[in-house]
Design a protein around this nucleic acid. Structure first.
Length: 812
DNA sequence: GTGTAATGCTATTGG
DNA sequence: AGCATTACAC
């Protein structure tokens, strides 16, 4: 089953694959087969007898790494591909840090603080310094510290940098450096690293320990980096150090798709690369295989408005394709309905399935209108990104117990659970404990363990309750040492009182929380069931324990038979939704996500929605040209996700914080060359049978751009920066809103609505629940998506159910 | 210390 | 509108 991979490449791709040694830059336009080049390049290295053990490939998501590994397996065999190190910067270097952590004073079981943890700690510190958290906003401080770390500036350097200090005084935050210093020591004492530390500390490790650097240079003789345009300085510095010995480094990227400057990414890295590796060879991939001519050309037309770019001409041999549809709607809800309706029509007209559609938006908050509309017409969808399972309160609570069990010094975990469920250790007591820990330069846990040695001034009741808590955590720890993740996890969920607490809570929210924890435990059970380890050719098991006193961890995933809680928790903090293994059922669903999350993906039909000034481009990005250019690149990324059809939409009004705001069309629509566009009015579709031609708007069907801007009262005036538009318009629909012929998908689309969509459930209906059986709806309350139904079940009696979780079926 | 009602803030983008 | 923090009653 040998695949002749080289023959599947065009000449440019092929030279990029075959150029094995030395520094290589591949400038890969959108849709030019970047992933294919990377995949085949790795396969090619392996075919040329380079050991998988010596290859490091850094990708943007772990999912991308996994998929690439699978494809490589198909070419060179699983056995070969298994030892490849592939993953994100964060996950790969977290793994290395765990292995080497003691050199920089951390235990290997260090905690990874997520954004919430970091911000909470900063909040605590700001309070301790008696500073105003309106001036020192934790999120802003966090961004600033994050920026410093990404530029490899530690707290000491920060405090000693005259320019930075002047800046902070200028913005009346002179104590920012002091906050940073305290944050740094607090994290260290808590044996915790934040996301930025994973890169920062890796740099420190490699800089300060030449023998460690040497070891990994020797290991990673061949380095590949995907999405190089989105690396920051810390990441670049890691790469530079690792590659310094052999200089076999291949970076792949597209400056036109650089969309992460806000977290420190800089295309300067490409320029640095040229300086640092004078004999670097550049290959350009300019042929787009993904999209129609119309889409490629439209994308080119928009990106040409950017001043800052490397020269590249993306072209395609594909068909001309349909023009890009542009929809104007009156409200955000109508925008949702329009998308749903268009999906319906496209499915009919072009034989497409749900999975061929994506709806892309600028901010997560925009998803609501689309969810609602898709639910109404029973089109299944999946939201990527946004709130993940691991960010739910109840899950974080349980995880905090796990974290504290593994790492007693984890201050944020301790604060989270010491009084949850409530056990009479209140804020005053906790403040005293923290204060004491600060005063004595000892960790919080040390204070808890040795209460009587400190002069705390807490009452004996609190003292005893703390002692009980400490005893409990210690018992967890000793049990964890000899049980698998599921056993101890289950034990902790019960003994901590969390499960009981939620079990007693019979509200629908409580029930769903309870079920979420059960789901977590199910996951742990799966993790804890030993996978039969395939015997490797030499007969020895391949898991990492077998090679325990090793110089280097064997692979990047730690697959093996370590079923402990510690092992389970290892990378939880780094998991994101898109990293989740594609679940059991690969369902046919429409994808909803932010444009950032869509990076690297492609769909037959792509909706880019909310194209309005102050939303896209974002209001935050209107101040500088650089920011605006990044928004434009973001739009470029969005448009180039589309293979066959692209649909743009904007609404003339939108609800925000419960109020209606007027909106103006995005400048990006105007920047697109008109000849690629087809202006449509929402609700008006030929042969669709619903909606009607509206007098005066787009009667000809094909819009003209002059009409278009005129109709929107926007012919001359460009939207002014940051102008808030009539923020106080009352919630009543405007006159214009009343004139609107409502698109009603329930009537308009001859679909099948017999499945019980939660929106269809009404008082009096007979329903069936998986567990409770048959019952009658006696009350409905709450709005979508938190609709609650009170149902009287014949067997189980009266229950309140949250419709988004309870899968009720209608009984005819 | 705990639980509930009123208040006020928020919505870039993400590992 | 929805969530988190704060204020206040118990």
């Amino acid at each position: 089953m040998e695949i002749n991979y080289l023959e599947e490449l065009n000449p440019e791709q092929r030279v990029a694959v075959e150029h094995i040694n030395g520094p290589v830059v591949v400038l890969a336009g959108a849709g030019s087969g970047k992933t294919r080049v990377l995949t085949y390049r790795i396969a090619h290295l392996l075919k040329n007898n380079i050991d998988a053990f010596n290859i490091l490939a850094l990708t943007f998501t772990n999912k991308a790494a996994r998929e690439m590994k699978e494809r490589i397996s198909k070419i060179v065999g699983e056995k070969e591909a298994k030892n490849l190190w592939m993953g994100t910067f964060h996950s790969v270097f977290a793994r290395i840090l765990r292995f080497e952590s003691e050199k920089i004073g951390y235990p290997s079981h260090f905690t990874i603080y997520d954004t919430d943890d970091s911000r909470n700690l900063l909040k605590t510190i700001i309070k301790e310094l008696s500073l105003d958290d309106k001036v020192y906003k934790p999120s802003l401080i966090h961004n600033r510290i994050s920026g410093a770390k990404n530029s490899l500036i530690n707290a000491n350097a920060y405090l000693n940098d005259a320019q930075i200090q002047a800046d902070d005084r200028q913005s009346s935050k002179p104590l920012l450096g002091e906050i940073y210093r305290r944050y740094e020591t607090r994290c260290f004492k808590a044996a915790a690293m934040d996301f930025d530390d994973l890169l920062f500390k890796t740099c420190v490790l490699l800089q300060q320990f030449p023998e460690v650097l040497y070891k990994y240079q020797e290991k990673f003789k061949y380095i590949l980096v995907d999405e190089f345009q989105d690396t920051n300085f810390a990441q670049y510095s890691i790469l530079k150090q690792l590659a310094a010995r052999f200089e076999n480094i291949c970076v792949v990227g597209d400056d036109a798709q650089s969309i992460y400057a806000f977290r420190g990414a800089t295309i300067r890295n490409i320029l640095n690369f040229k300086q640092d590796y004078p004999d670097m060879v550049t290959y350009k991939l300019e042929q787009n295989y993904r999209s129609t001519k119309n889409i490629v050309n439209a994308a080119n037309s928009i990106i040409s408005n950017n001043r800052q770019q490397l020269h590249k001409t993306v072209w395609t041999d594909n068909e001309e394709g349909q023009k890009i549809l542009v929809f104007r709607t009156l409200t955000d809800n109508e925008e949702g309905l329009t998308a749903a309706q268009q999906i319906f029509e496209f499915k009919n007209n072009f034989q497409l399935h749900n999975r061929h559609f994506a709806i892309l938006y600028r901010t997560n908050a925009q998803s609501r209108a689309f969810e609602e509309a898709l639910r109404k017409v029973n089109i299944p969808y999946k939201i990527y990104g946004g709130f993940s399972f691991y960010q739910r309160k109840e899950i974080k609570d349980v995880l905090a117990y796990f974290r504290l069990t593994i790492n007693n010094n984890d201050e944020e975990a301790l604060k989270r659970v010491i009084n949850f469920p409530a056990r009479g250790i209140g804020d005053t007591t906790i403040d005293k404990l923290i204060l004491c820990a600060n005063d004595h330069a000892s960790g919080l846990w040390t204070v808890l363990e040795n209460l009587d040695e400190f002069n705390l001034g807490i009452n004996s009741g609190a003292r005893n309750r703390i002692i009980d808590f400490v005893t409990m955590i210690k018992s967890f720890a000793s049990m964890a040492a000899q049980s698998n993740a599921f056993e101890i996890g289950n034990h902790i969920a019960k003994q901590s009182g969390i499960l009981k607490d939620l079990y007693d809570d019979k509200s629908p929210e409580g029930l769903s929380k309870y079920e979420n924890i059960q789901e977590l435990l199910n996951g742990m059970k799966e993790f804890s069931s030993p996978v039969p380890v395939p015997t490797s050719p030499n007969g020895s098991p391949t898991e990492k324990e077998a090679s325990a006193p090793n110089e280097i961890p064997v692979d990047s995933e730690g697959i093996g038979n370590d079923l402990s809680l510690t092992s389970f928790m290892q990378d939880i903090a780094l998991l994101t939704d898109s990293d989740k293994k594609d679940g059991e059922e690969e369902r046919d669903t429409v994808s909803l996500m932010t444009i950032h999350a869509a990076k690297g993906l492609e769909f037959q039909v792509v909706f880019i929605v909310g194209l309005e000034e102050n939303l896209f481009p974002s209001q935050m990005a209107l101040n500088t040209r650089a920011d605006l250019e990044e928004e434009r690149r973001l739009f470029y990324v969005a448009l180039t996700r589309a293979q066959k059809h692209a649909i743009l939409s904007y609404s003339v009004s939108r609800y925000k914080w419960g109020n209606r705001f007027d909106c103006e069309p995005s400048r990006f629509i105007e920047e697109l060359n008109e000849k690629y566009l087809d202006f449509k009015q929402a609700g008006r579709q030929e042969n669709s049978g619903f909606g009607q031609n509206r007098q005066g708007w787009n009667r000809a069907g094909q819009g003209n751009i002059n009409d278009f801007w005129k109709k929107n009262g926007n012919q001359q005036s460009k939207p002014k920066n940051g102008t808030e538009l009539n923020p106080t318009i009352p919630k009543v629909p405007s006159i214009e809103g009343k004139k609107l012929i409502k698109v009603n998908p329930q009537q308009g689309i001859p679909g099948n609505y017999s499945t019980a969509s939660e929106l269809n459930i009404q008082v009096g209906m007979e329903v069936k629940h998986q567990r409770f059986g048959l019952g009658k709806v006696i009350n409905m309350e709450g709005g979508y998506p938190n609709q609650k139904a009170t149902v009287f079940f014949h067997e189980a009696g009266q229950k309140q159910l949250l419709l988004k979780f309870a899968k009720l079926e209608l009984v005819k």
